[in-house]
Amino acid sequence: MKVGIPRALLYYRYGEFWKSFFKCLNVDFIISPPTNKKILDQGVKYVSSEVCLPVKIICGHLDWLKNKATHLFLPRFVELNNGLYTCPKMIGIVDIARFHFQNYFQIISPKIKNNFYWTHFKLGLKLTKNPLKVKNAIDNAQKYLNSYPKLKANGAPKILLLSHFYNIYDYYISQPIIETFKNQGFTIITKEHLDNKRLNSTKGFAKNIRWVYERELYNAFYYFLPQVQGVCNIISFGCGPDSLISEVMLNEAHIQNKPFLQLIIDEHTSATGLITRIEAFCEIIKKRLDNNVSSIIL
Protein backbone atom coordinates (compact mmCIF):
# COMPACT_ATOMS: atom_id res chain seq x y z
CA MET A 1 0.00 0.00 0.00
CA LYS A 2 1.37 3.34 -1.04
CA VAL A 3 -0.63 6.47 -0.32
CA GLY A 4 -0.30 9.35 -2.73
CA ILE A 5 -0.76 12.89 -1.44
CA PRO A 6 -1.02 15.66 -4.02
CA ARG A 7 1.09 18.69 -3.18
CA ALA A 8 -1.69 21.15 -3.92
CA LEU A 9 -4.72 22.89 -2.44
CA LEU A 10 -5.13 21.77 1.19
CA TYR A 11 -1.67 20.21 1.35
CA TYR A 12 -0.23 23.63 2.03
CA ARG A 13 -2.27 23.87 5.20
CA TYR A 14 -2.50 20.31 6.49
CA GLY A 15 0.43 18.70 4.66
CA GLU A 16 2.81 18.66 7.61
CA PHE A 17 0.03 17.23 9.77
CA TRP A 18 -0.66 14.42 7.32
CA LYS A 19 3.03 13.65 6.83
CA SER A 20 3.60 13.28 10.54
CA PHE A 21 0.35 11.35 10.96
CA PHE A 22 1.17 8.78 8.29
CA LYS A 23 4.77 8.49 9.44
CA CYS A 24 3.65 7.63 12.98
CA LEU A 25 1.33 4.95 11.64
CA ASN A 26 4.10 3.46 9.47
CA VAL A 27 2.18 4.06 6.27
CA ASP A 28 4.22 4.39 3.11
CA PHE A 29 3.34 7.60 1.32
CA ILE A 30 4.48 9.58 -1.68
CA ILE A 31 4.03 13.31 -2.20
CA SER A 32 3.98 14.81 -5.65
CA PRO A 33 6.80 17.26 -6.46
CA PRO A 34 6.34 21.03 -6.29
CA THR A 35 4.22 22.40 -9.11
CA ASN A 36 5.97 22.93 -12.40
CA LYS A 37 4.95 23.80 -15.93
CA LYS A 38 4.48 20.18 -16.95
CA ILE A 39 2.16 19.42 -14.03
CA LEU A 40 0.03 22.47 -14.76
CA ASP A 41 -0.17 21.63 -18.46
CA GLN A 42 -1.36 18.12 -17.60
CA GLY A 43 -3.91 19.44 -15.10
CA VAL A 44 -5.53 21.82 -17.55
CA LYS A 45 -6.56 18.86 -19.69
CA TYR A 46 -8.77 17.33 -17.02
CA VAL A 47 -11.15 20.11 -15.99
CA SER A 48 -13.24 22.76 -17.71
CA SER A 49 -11.47 25.97 -18.53
CA GLU A 50 -13.64 27.96 -16.11
CA VAL A 51 -12.44 26.56 -12.80
CA CYS A 52 -9.78 28.34 -10.78
CA LEU A 53 -6.04 27.77 -11.14
CA PRO A 54 -5.51 25.72 -7.93
CA VAL A 55 -8.06 23.15 -9.09
CA LYS A 56 -6.25 22.81 -12.42
CA ILE A 57 -2.98 22.41 -10.55
CA ILE A 58 -4.30 19.68 -8.26
CA CYS A 59 -5.50 17.72 -11.29
CA GLY A 60 -1.96 17.89 -12.65
CA HIS A 61 -0.64 16.52 -9.36
CA LEU A 62 -3.17 13.69 -9.42
CA ASP A 63 -2.04 12.91 -12.94
CA TRP A 64 1.58 12.76 -11.75
CA LEU A 65 0.61 10.39 -8.94
CA LYS A 66 -1.53 8.05 -10.99
CA ASN A 67 1.00 5.30 -11.70
CA LYS A 68 3.11 5.81 -8.61
CA ALA A 69 0.66 5.13 -5.80
CA THR A 70 -2.00 2.55 -5.04
CA HIS A 71 -4.16 4.79 -2.87
CA LEU A 72 -4.98 8.47 -3.08
CA PHE A 73 -5.49 10.51 0.07
CA LEU A 74 -7.87 13.38 -0.64
CA PRO A 75 -10.11 14.31 2.28
CA ARG A 76 -13.35 16.13 1.61
CA PHE A 77 -13.44 19.29 3.68
CA VAL A 78 -17.10 20.27 3.87
CA GLU A 79 -17.37 22.23 7.10
CA LEU A 80 -14.77 23.37 9.58
CA ASN A 81 -15.18 24.73 13.08
CA ASN A 82 -18.73 25.94 13.83
CA GLY A 83 -20.31 25.20 10.49
CA LEU A 84 -18.06 27.32 8.32
CA TYR A 85 -17.84 26.04 4.77
CA THR A 86 -14.69 25.67 2.74
CA CYS A 87 -15.64 26.31 -0.87
CA PRO A 88 -17.71 24.47 -3.51
CA LYS A 89 -14.65 23.51 -5.48
CA MET A 90 -12.88 21.98 -2.49
CA ILE A 91 -15.97 19.91 -1.79
CA GLY A 92 -16.29 18.89 -5.41
CA ILE A 93 -12.63 18.15 -6.11
CA VAL A 94 -12.99 14.65 -4.65
CA ASP A 95 -15.76 13.89 -7.14
CA ILE A 96 -13.68 15.28 -10.00
CA ALA A 97 -10.80 13.05 -8.90
CA ARG A 98 -13.22 10.12 -8.81
CA PHE A 99 -14.41 10.74 -12.38
CA HIS A 100 -10.93 10.82 -13.87
CA PHE A 101 -8.70 8.67 -11.67
CA GLN A 102 -11.02 5.97 -10.34
CA ASN A 103 -9.22 3.29 -12.34
CA TYR A 104 -5.75 4.28 -11.23
CA PHE A 105 -6.08 4.18 -7.48
CA GLN A 106 -8.43 3.68 -4.59
CA ILE A 107 -9.46 7.07 -3.26
CA ILE A 108 -9.42 7.56 0.51
CA SER A 109 -11.61 10.58 1.13
CA PRO A 110 -12.82 10.92 4.71
CA LYS A 111 -15.49 13.56 5.03
CA ILE A 112 -14.62 16.34 7.44
CA LYS A 113 -17.69 18.04 8.78
CA ASN A 114 -16.87 19.81 12.04
CA ASN A 115 -14.93 16.74 13.18
CA PHE A 116 -11.33 17.07 12.12
CA TYR A 117 -10.02 14.98 15.02
CA TRP A 118 -12.52 12.14 14.84
CA THR A 119 -12.31 11.76 11.09
CA HIS A 120 -8.57 11.23 11.33
CA PHE A 121 -9.03 8.94 14.33
CA LYS A 122 -11.41 6.73 12.37
CA LEU A 123 -9.06 6.74 9.40
CA GLY A 124 -6.19 5.77 11.67
CA LEU A 125 -8.16 2.83 13.09
CA LYS A 126 -8.52 1.45 9.58
CA LEU A 127 -4.77 1.55 9.13
CA THR A 128 -3.78 0.09 12.48
CA LYS A 129 -5.61 -1.83 15.18
CA ASN A 130 -4.17 0.06 18.11
CA PRO A 131 -6.27 3.09 19.12
CA LEU A 132 -3.55 4.41 21.43
CA LYS A 133 -1.10 4.54 18.54
CA VAL A 134 -3.61 6.48 16.47
CA LYS A 135 -4.18 8.93 19.29
CA ASN A 136 -0.46 9.44 19.68
CA ALA A 137 -0.04 9.96 15.97
CA ILE A 138 -2.71 12.66 15.88
CA ASP A 139 -1.43 14.36 19.02
CA ASN A 140 2.09 14.36 17.62
CA ALA A 141 0.93 15.74 14.31
CA GLN A 142 -1.24 18.41 15.82
CA LYS A 143 1.69 20.65 16.67
CA TYR A 144 2.13 21.29 12.95
CA LEU A 145 -1.36 22.74 12.68
CA ASN A 146 -0.75 25.70 14.94
CA SER A 147 2.78 26.71 14.06
CA TYR A 148 3.17 30.19 12.70
CA PRO A 149 6.22 32.06 11.47
CA LYS A 150 7.24 34.95 13.70
CA LEU A 151 7.17 38.39 12.20
CA LYS A 152 10.59 40.02 12.10
CA ALA A 153 10.39 43.67 12.99
CA ASN A 154 12.64 45.93 10.97
CA GLY A 155 12.38 49.36 9.47
CA ALA A 156 11.42 48.23 5.99
CA PRO A 157 7.99 49.21 4.68
CA LYS A 158 5.49 46.42 5.03
CA ILE A 159 3.20 44.94 2.46
CA LEU A 160 0.25 42.69 3.26
CA LEU A 161 0.15 39.80 0.80
CA LEU A 162 -3.42 38.53 0.96
CA SER A 163 -4.24 35.26 -0.64
CA HIS A 164 -5.17 31.69 0.07
CA PHE A 165 -2.41 29.46 1.39
CA TYR A 166 -2.56 27.36 -1.75
CA ASN A 167 -1.62 30.39 -3.81
CA ILE A 168 1.08 31.86 -1.58
CA TYR A 169 2.91 28.66 -0.66
CA ASP A 170 2.77 27.24 -4.16
CA TYR A 171 5.97 28.88 -5.32
CA TYR A 172 5.15 28.24 -8.95
CA ILE A 173 2.36 30.78 -8.58
CA SER A 174 3.70 33.20 -6.03
CA GLN A 175 7.47 33.23 -6.54
CA PRO A 176 7.63 36.14 -9.03
CA ILE A 177 5.32 38.17 -6.80
CA ILE A 178 7.19 37.54 -3.55
CA GLU A 179 10.61 37.98 -5.17
CA THR A 180 9.64 41.30 -6.71
CA PHE A 181 8.38 42.68 -3.42
CA LYS A 182 11.56 41.54 -1.68
CA ASN A 183 13.76 43.06 -4.39
CA GLN A 184 11.94 46.33 -3.94
CA GLY A 185 12.82 46.25 -0.25
CA PHE A 186 9.46 45.40 1.30
CA THR A 187 8.71 43.11 4.21
CA ILE A 188 5.90 40.73 3.38
CA ILE A 189 3.18 39.96 5.89
CA THR A 190 0.73 37.15 5.25
CA LYS A 191 -2.31 36.02 7.18
CA GLU A 192 -0.24 33.25 8.77
CA HIS A 193 1.44 35.91 10.92
CA LEU A 194 -1.77 36.37 12.85
CA ASP A 195 -2.74 34.10 15.73
CA ASN A 196 -5.62 31.66 15.52
CA LYS A 197 -7.95 33.58 17.78
CA ARG A 198 -7.76 36.79 15.78
CA LEU A 199 -8.03 34.91 12.50
CA ASN A 200 -11.34 33.40 13.51
CA SER A 201 -12.83 36.42 15.24
CA THR A 202 -16.36 37.39 14.30
CA LYS A 203 -16.00 41.12 14.63
CA GLY A 204 -17.52 43.42 12.05
CA PHE A 205 -18.15 42.13 8.54
CA ALA A 206 -16.29 38.90 9.30
CA LYS A 207 -19.32 37.47 11.06
CA ASN A 208 -21.28 37.53 7.80
CA ILE A 209 -18.66 35.49 5.96
CA ARG A 210 -19.40 31.79 6.11
CA TRP A 211 -16.37 30.65 4.12
CA VAL A 212 -13.71 29.69 6.62
CA TYR A 213 -10.62 30.74 4.66
CA GLU A 214 -12.23 33.95 3.45
CA ARG A 215 -13.05 34.89 7.01
CA GLU A 216 -9.40 34.41 7.91
CA LEU A 217 -8.34 36.58 4.99
CA TYR A 218 -10.75 39.32 5.95
CA ASN A 219 -9.70 39.26 9.60
CA ALA A 220 -6.04 39.41 8.65
CA PHE A 221 -6.80 42.31 6.33
CA TYR A 222 -8.76 44.13 8.99
CA TYR A 223 -6.09 43.63 11.64
CA PHE A 224 -3.03 44.46 9.55
CA LEU A 225 -4.45 47.31 7.47
CA PRO A 226 -3.36 50.15 9.81
CA GLN A 227 0.15 48.66 10.15
CA VAL A 228 1.04 48.18 6.49
CA GLN A 229 1.85 50.56 3.67
CA GLY A 230 -0.03 48.65 1.01
CA VAL A 231 -2.12 45.57 0.35
CA CYS A 232 -1.63 43.11 -2.49
CA ASN A 233 -4.42 40.62 -3.09
CA ILE A 234 -3.76 37.63 -5.33
CA ILE A 235 -6.97 36.19 -6.78
CA SER A 236 -7.10 33.17 -9.00
CA PHE A 237 -9.43 33.82 -11.91
CA GLY A 238 -12.77 32.19 -11.32
CA CYS A 239 -12.45 32.14 -7.54
CA GLY A 240 -15.97 32.87 -6.33
CA PRO A 241 -15.41 33.81 -2.69
CA ASP A 242 -12.48 36.06 -3.54
CA SER A 243 -14.45 37.99 -6.13
CA LEU A 244 -16.85 39.13 -3.41
CA ILE A 245 -14.63 39.53 -0.37
CA SER A 246 -11.90 41.27 -2.34
CA GLU A 247 -14.45 43.89 -3.34
CA VAL A 248 -15.39 44.43 0.31
CA MET A 249 -11.72 44.78 1.23
CA LEU A 250 -11.10 47.12 -1.68
CA ASN A 251 -13.85 49.43 -0.45
CA GLU A 252 -12.43 49.39 3.06
CA ALA A 253 -8.92 50.15 1.79
CA HIS A 254 -10.32 53.07 -0.21
CA ILE A 255 -11.95 54.50 2.89
CA GLN A 256 -8.70 54.22 4.84
CA ASN A 257 -6.76 55.53 1.84
CA LYS A 258 -4.36 52.59 1.53
CA PRO A 259 -3.04 51.38 -1.84
CA PHE A 260 -4.68 48.11 -2.81
CA LEU A 261 -3.47 45.94 -5.68
CA GLN A 262 -5.63 43.16 -7.10
CA LEU A 263 -3.64 40.62 -9.08
CA ILE A 264 -5.80 38.18 -10.98
CA ILE A 265 -3.89 35.11 -12.05
CA ASP A 266 -4.58 32.10 -14.21
CA GLU A 267 -2.52 29.68 -16.25
CA HIS A 268 -1.92 32.28 -18.95
CA THR A 269 -0.53 34.92 -16.62
CA SER A 270 3.01 35.93 -17.50
CA ALA A 271 5.51 36.62 -14.74
CA THR A 272 6.81 39.67 -16.59
CA GLY A 273 3.42 41.33 -16.62
CA LEU A 274 3.03 40.69 -12.90
CA ILE A 275 6.47 42.08 -12.13
CA THR A 276 5.79 45.29 -14.05
CA ARG A 277 2.55 45.86 -12.20
CA ILE A 278 4.10 45.15 -8.82
CA GLU A 279 7.04 47.47 -9.52
CA ALA A 280 4.65 50.27 -10.44
CA PHE A 281 2.69 49.59 -7.27
CA CYS A 282 5.85 49.69 -5.17
CA GLU A 283 6.82 53.00 -6.76
CA ILE A 284 3.50 54.49 -5.68
CA ILE A 285 4.01 53.37 -2.10
CA LYS A 286 7.56 54.69 -2.06
CA LYS A 287 6.47 58.03 -3.43
CA ARG A 288 3.82 58.26 -0.75
CA LEU A 289 6.39 57.47 1.93
CA ASP A 290 8.83 60.07 0.56
CA ASN A 291 6.40 62.95 0.25
CA ASN A 292 4.17 61.92 3.10
CA VAL A 293 1.37 62.57 0.69
CA SER A 294 -1.77 60.82 1.69
CA SER A 295 -4.02 62.27 -0.95
CA ILE A 296 -2.97 60.11 -3.90
CA ILE A 297 -6.00 58.02 -4.62
CA LEU A 298 -5.49 54.72 -6.33
Binding site: E50, K89, I91, G92, D95, F99, G238
Partner: peptide, 16 residues
Amino acid sequence: PFTCMPENIAYEALQK
Protein backbone atom coordinates in the same frame (compact mmCIF):
# COMPACT_ATOMS: atom_id res chain seq x y z
CA PRO B 1 -23.46 31.81 -15.20
CA PHE B 2 -19.81 32.13 -16.18
CA THR B 3 -17.47 31.13 -13.29
CA CYS B 4 -20.36 29.80 -11.18
CA MET B 5 -18.62 27.62 -8.61
CA PRO B 6 -21.20 24.89 -7.86
CA GLU B 7 -22.30 24.56 -11.47
CA ASN B 8 -18.72 24.08 -12.57
CA ILE B 9 -18.52 21.03 -10.33
CA ALA B 10 -21.87 19.93 -11.75
CA TYR B 11 -20.39 20.39 -15.22
CA GLU B 12 -17.69 17.84 -14.47
CA ALA B 13 -20.31 15.44 -13.14
CA LEU B 14 -22.47 15.93 -16.24
CA GLN B 15 -19.53 15.13 -18.51
CA LYS B 16 -19.20 11.81 -16.71
